[in-house]
């Protein structure tokens, strides 16, 4: 039994020895030329969309948008310490004159 398995393994391992190269189909050259022609006749929009459709480009764009959003959020939250103390005082909203804020008494 063991000899049979060993023999089968050896036969499988040697099965590609002396093999011939597979021949490309006869229409391959025509197919290549069609690929060359298609590449040459791509419009600018087709080239742009093909470029944008690449996963690397898409993921990079998403990463940039997320990074910009994160930057804006964190910058917006980082309030200077002086402002925090000032805002701790209660504000009388009814006496606040939006049109004359500069002349308000402290």
């Amino acid at each position: 039994m063991k000899e049979k398995i060993t023999s089968s393994v050896e036969q499988a391992m040697n099965s590609v020895d002396g093999m011939q190269r597979a021949q490309a189909p006869g229409y391959l050259y025509a197919k290549i030329l069609s690929g060359v022609y298609r590449r040459q006749t791509l419009t600018i929009w087709e080239r742009i969309s093909a470029f944008m459709a690449r996963p690397v480009v898409t993921l990079t764009c998403i990463a940039v948008v997320v990074a910009i959003n994160a930057l804006i959020i964190f910058k917006g939250n980082a309030v200077p310490a002086g402002n925090v103390i000032a805002s701790a005082e209660p504000v009388d909203f009814y006496s606040y004159d939006i049109y004359n804020a500069e002349n308000m008494e402290p």
Binding site: S8, Q11, A12, S15, V16, G18, M19, Q20, A22, Q23
Partner: peptide, 13 residues
Amino acid sequence: EHPGVLAENKDHA
């Protein structure tokens, strides 16, 4: 089945 493999080796290949 690779076309370049000898007929007697096809199953093992």
